[in-house]
Design a protein around this nucleic acid. Structure first.
Lengths: 230, 230
DNA sequence: CAAATAGTGTCTTTGAGACACTATCGT
DNA sequence: ACGATAGTGTCTCAAAGACACTATTTG
């Protein structure tokens, strides 16, 4: 049997099929707190509880395209950073039917956020991650476990890669970069040490902030997004 | 029916369903080389080429259970270390139909290997990873890309976690542990430095190797498998 | 003894951590 | 001048790296 004949006679139905979703963990820093986009479920199961924005993966759509669709449709963003986190495949993770979910971490700058979502809406739909992690009963499905896992990953990404840049606009100050990193790590850093560590990853623009009631701060841009491994 | 036709004629159900597989990247060290289990395909597509052992995920089976089934049925092993690597979901990664694959890295000690597979079979079914990576044309589907990704991950696991232990029997010598680590990292290490670094992770058994035509070596066991993060 | 491998002592370099200091804005 | 934040210099300490040395087996 040659290849064409084989493909012609192939019956896809002889293998089990199941539903696949992608879930997006859209993080942003709001008022110096790490927040995550969650939606309130308006139907069973878990009606009234919070869940990650997600969608079913279409048969002719890559996982990345499905994530982009979620980010655009459910959050209004395009061209933002995301990366795969983990795939969750317990048999009973959804009480309705067998659904396997591929979760993606996505990072949003405050700037990008304010461009799309009104202030009041932001307060509703982006929730403090610390608060969420203290209240597991608020989450639907296995989404608490997923958020927990993503929270740990973010700390690693801040420590070993320089993921903090993704939360900032094109130009930023070092105090701000340090603050973001501290939020992601969960502890404070020494200013001088932090600057020594990241000095090769930023480029001075030779312009300064202004208007604040204190000393202006130098604005920087990212040096090389591809060489971020410490 | 090829993939394009299949997609064209596809009638959406309420939710799209698709096929999900798990693929196992079973690594072992054989003759001081990093090797991986590959199977020769005996039917199209990619007939004659090499592919990762894998299976379709059953509707009532978790991803982990599916991996265990692959490890047992296709390799003959149970109770071996494995962890999720990545999920591959390009639309056309399989020419027959839409298949998303969750890949898992699994590590096998030489000991466990020799208990199950005969020497001649081992030579056929476990192939030198360096050789494979030099010959992309030998691999079916997107499995070359997957192996490449796993190879990088192994180096990270050796560097930041102490994954080398998984390739060794319960009792091992430090020269052997160092050799495994060097193979995974891809470069040599200084003996004294290596020992300083891992000294808290091993416990001396106060017994020695014997029978070799040189100085015997102290045998050690693993200290605490759960505190491996450097 | 020679060959081969096991194992140790120590100097140097690098980077993380801690802390104190100086600088510059608006009011 | 003062409050507040920006930015720098430098000491300490721990770990990584490099290298030289000693130790123990068989043949």
């Amino acid at each position: 049997m040659n290849n064409d004949e084989y493909l012609k006679n192939y019956k896809p139905e002889k293998y089990d099929k199941l539903s696949l979703t992608v879930d997006a963990l859209i993080f942003s820093i709001i008022n110096d707190k790490l927040c995550i986009r969650l939606v309130k479920r308006n139907k069973p199961p878990f009606e009234g509880l919070l869940s990650l924005p997600g969608t079913f993966v279409k048969i002719n759509e890559s996982l990345e395209d499905a994530v982009k669709r979620v980010l655009k449709e459910k959050a209004g963003f395009s061209d933002i950073y995301f990366e795969q986190l983990y795939t969750w495949g317990d048999v009973n993770r959804d009480p309705r039917m067998r659904i396997v979910s591929v979760s993606y971490i996505s990072l949003l700058s405050e700037e990008a956020l304010s461009n799309v979502i009104k202030k009041e809406e932001t307060d509703e739909s982006f929730l403090d991650v610390d608060y969420i992690l203290d209240n597991p009963q608020l989450l639907a499905f296995d989404h608490y476990k997923i958020i927990e896992s993503a929270r740990k990953r973010l700390a690693i990404l801040a420590e070993e890669y320089n993921i903090s840049f993704e939360f900032l606009p094109k130009e930023f100050t070092l105090p701000r970069l340090q603050k973001i990193t501290e939020i992601l790590l969960g502890h404070n850093l020494y200013k001088a040490n932090f600057r020594k560590k990241i000095q090769d990853k930023v480029i001075s623009t030779n312009t300064y902030t202004s208007g604040d009631a204190f000393r202006p701060s130098m604005l920087y841009t990212v040096a090389d997004k591809d060489s971020f491994k410490v």
